[in-house]
Design a binder for these strands. Structure first.
Lengths: 154, 154
DNA sequence: GTAAATTAGTACTAAATCAGTCCTATTTAG
DNA sequence: CTAAATAGGACTGATTTAGTACTAATTTAC
């Protein structure tokens, strides 16, 4: 159903809290702390932060008094970055991967080039929204907001 | 990984062939015929066309000499229509569904409103490309084409 | 009326993916 | 040394997807 995974969804929630946490101060937050704030289970939050650290979106410090902080400003982290970190490359179809062309129709497929365009458009859409924007609940809409009902019947 | 299903991908391929098939003439094509043209297995193509018929994107006629044709002009069918027909509503997160709010954070979630924006942007991206455009292999790009390699490392 | 070709609908199974938890290192302040 | 924290991986159950198969209904030709 063209869904992102829950983990990617959680990642944005957790990073929003982390961003809010370190407003002004450059304080670290622990997985435990972020779990409490977000209401998400601690093992899940830990798993998430580990992956985000591996991807370079957050920086970790080990040991007592350890924790996580954003690797760069929340304005410089996009939703595309976060989805990419947690789910890997954004590739709507297999054509969009640079992989060993498991498709079998590679090159011969008439719609291949167009999928690349679409994928690019979506990467742009996700790349145009920063974590900073996601973190403020009522940022001015870039596009007209559809109601849930409209979307469900779209 | 933010993928559409293979069935949605196939749907676009099959509909492209169907569209090409009935250029000028208002001829029908059979599932068998479209299977041969697309190289996709016949049972899969049949399953697909049944769903597309149910969704109203194609019109079917039964019996000997039966077959399928597009329900409307290829310019009036968008990629969003096709994805919606095969996969159901485009909803990146559960927030984007009008469902009985299984989320538990409904309303309280700080990023909910922003997900709706993002979802809307993606629906627009998919809605801006018609089947007619998908069917021609080298339509002029609306956006700069990224190479596969760029996308893989994006 | 019968046969043949086609779509309609449903059910089923195997494979892949996702979600969530748990366990065992490693690091570091005190 | 101990406590609190992250790192990495393994594991399991649930969900989704992919593909096939089977039976019924429809329509044309003869």
């Amino acid at each position: 159903m063209l869904r992102i995974t829950k983990l990617a969804d959680y990642a944005i929630v957790v990073l929003s809290h982390l961003s809010a946490e370190q407003q002004g101060s450059s304080e670290k937050s622990t997985a435990r702390n972020l779990s409490h704030r977000s209401g998400l289970p601690q093992p899940t939050v830990s798993k998430l932060l580990k992956e985000l650290a591996r991807s370079g979106l957050v920086v970790s410090e080990r040991g007592l008094l350890g924790g996580y902080r954003l690797a760069r400003d929340a304005n410089a982290i996009t939703v595309a970055d976060i989805v990419h970190a947690v789910e890997g490359p954004i590739a709507l179809t297999e054509c969009n991967l640079s992989e060993p062309e498991a498709c079998g129709y590679a090159g011969a497929c008439p719609v291949e080039a167009n999928w690349i365009r679409i994928n690019d458009a979506i990467v742009r859409a996700l790349g145009s929204i920063s974590l900073a924007e996601m973190a403020k609940p009522f940022s001015p809409p870039l596009v007209r907001l559809s109601t849930k009902r409209e979307l469900a019947h779209a």
